[in-house]
Design a protein around this nucleic acid. Structure first.
Lengths: 81, 81
DNA sequence: ATGCTATGTAGCATTAATGCAACATCTAGG
DNA sequence: CCTAGATGTTGCATTAATGCTACATAGCAT
């Protein structure tokens, strides 16, 4: 019900966490361990039920060998690629 | 007294907001307006009293024509450049 | 001196982000 | 069939991030 409010209403954050995670053959638990967060948190982020803090975003990007800008965006990602 | 806790203790986030802002000749109020936040929030961030949410970081970076990774880092920036 | 702008500081209120626990579902293997 | 792993769902508690207000200070004009 509650969309993604980050901290300021009406501004969701799109991400490719699941895509990148699966591509590396990692489970959510695996990624959560690498990023140092609860595995449920990864689930919430993948479902875009809320947007991460900057530190979390950086740690997740690092865990997935991606740039923050490649994983997160204020505008929707196009599928594939 | 309270350091930068972001959301997980012991992990500050360093930034170059002030440096980039001044380089553009903007006041905190100016930047706050462009990023759509309270001007005090910019002050808190520049003093690194807390770290921003991902959306805020992205919006600030955009307002300063910088990449998120150029403005924020988990490790301290070297001075100049 | 007066005023204006930029900034620092402090406090208070609200809420989203995170941790965590419990349970359900589904699938793949044995 | 049964079990284990991965994921979804719900709910509760804690706290940092943000908004906002007010006041102090310092500098720079006029």
């Amino acid at each position: 019900m509650l969309p993604i409010m980050s901290r300021n209403p009406e501004e969701p954050v799109y991400n490719r966490i699941e895509e990148a995670r699966v591509a590396l053959g990692l489970s959510r638990q695996d990624l959560a361990d690498k990023a140092g967060v609860h595995y449920q948190t990864i689930g919430y982020l993948e479902r875009e039920e809320y947007s991460p803090s900057l530190v979390l975003a950086i740690r997740i990007a690092k865990s997935l060998n991606q740039e923050v800008s490649e994983l997160f965006s204020l505008t929707p990602f196009k599928k594939g690629k």
